[in-house]
């Protein structure tokens, strides 16, 4: 026992070291922090209080859409899914999820649009449309406070692809996501604090946008900043990156709808 244990430990430590060096600088799990932690007191208060959180308007519109009949099937989300406070609890915490029919990971926006086309015989909502953001915010709100979950083995290839994208330098400025959000979080890019980049609160109300926006919109912002060609909305690369980011944020609580500068 005493002879074999250290040997096991050595193997484990060696394996851990291999993983760590292959990952570059993954943030240790206990050092991860939501961007919320670095908000000013006013912005925190805005997020925490539904009556002052601007995203509440979208959540309420999303609730109305949830109960509204749509498409040639003349069917509301609620007719299949019932009371969202029960049926949607925890759902946003585990998206992107693997869709057996599509045989690929899909994010929550794509899930909503699949329900529209497949179940309601309705036209899909455009990405970043008020309706899609509203329903996503309403569904996401039902998971507020619940830990992000990323345990589905079928997501592994997408998570691995997303990790590669996160590590890849892009654009004329030639920087990777990891170079800021793994290696330099907590420092300042001009006036902006570089966050760790955990997608805990999407869709977010971003003060800079004066609007609600999706994680994909936020990712496109960073890519455009790097003078890179952004991923198209709904592109497999974008969903893979979302899947990686959710895995990376596993265990952190959902804040949807969050407020950010």
């Amino acid at each position: 026992m005493t002879g074999s244990l250290p040997r096991c430990l050595i193997v484990a430590i060696a394996l851990a070291a291999c993983v760590a060096s292959a990952n570059g600088g993954d943030i240790p799990l206990d050092q991860r922090r939501s961007g919320y932690a670095d908000l000013g007191r006013d912005t925190k208060a805005m997020q925490d209080d539904d009556t002052s959180n601007p995203a509440t308007l979208w959540v309420l519109d999303g609730e109305a859409l949830w109960n509204q009949k749509a498409g040639s099937a003349n069917r509301a989300c609620a007719e299949c899914h019932g009371d969202a406070t029960a049926s949607m609890k925890g759902v946003a915490a585990r998206y992107p999820a693997f869709d057996a029919v599509q045989k690929s990971p899909i994010d929550l926006e794509q899930r909503i649009n699949l329900c529209r086309t497949e179940r309601q015989n309705a036209t899909p909502f455009a990405f970043e449309s008020h309706e899609l953001l509203a329903l996503t915010a309403f569904i996401g709100r039902q998971s507020r406070g619940m830990p992000i979950v990323s345990t589905d083995e079928k997501l592994k290839p997408a998570i691995e692809a997303g990790r590669k994208l996160f590590m890849q330098r892009i654009g004329q400025i030639d920087m990777s996501c990891a170079q800021c959000h793994d290696d330099n979080w907590g420092k300042h890019l001009t006036s902006s604090l570089v966050p760790q980049g955990h997608p805990t609160g999407y869709p977010i109300y971003r003060l800079e946008w004066q609007n609600l926006g999706s994680l994909q919109r936020r990712l496109r912002n960073c890519m455009i900043g790097m003078r890179a060609e952004p991923f198209d909305y709904g592109a497999p690369e974008a969903v893979a990156l979302e899947a990686y980011l959710m895995w990376r944020a596993r265990g952190l609580p959902v804040e949807t709808p969050a407020v950010r500068p």
């Binding site: 890849q168 330098r169 892009i170 654009g171 004329q172 400025i173 030639d174 920087m175 170079q179 800021c180 290696d183 330099n184 890519m223 455009i224 003078r227 890179a228 060609e229």
Partner: peptide, 24 residues
Amino acid sequence: TIMPAYYAVDGLNRVAPAFRGKPL
């Protein structure tokens, strides 16, 4: 290094069309 190469156009990924083939 995170310092970009200000005078290089090769070996870059996904450069936006407006900046392709041009150094910083």
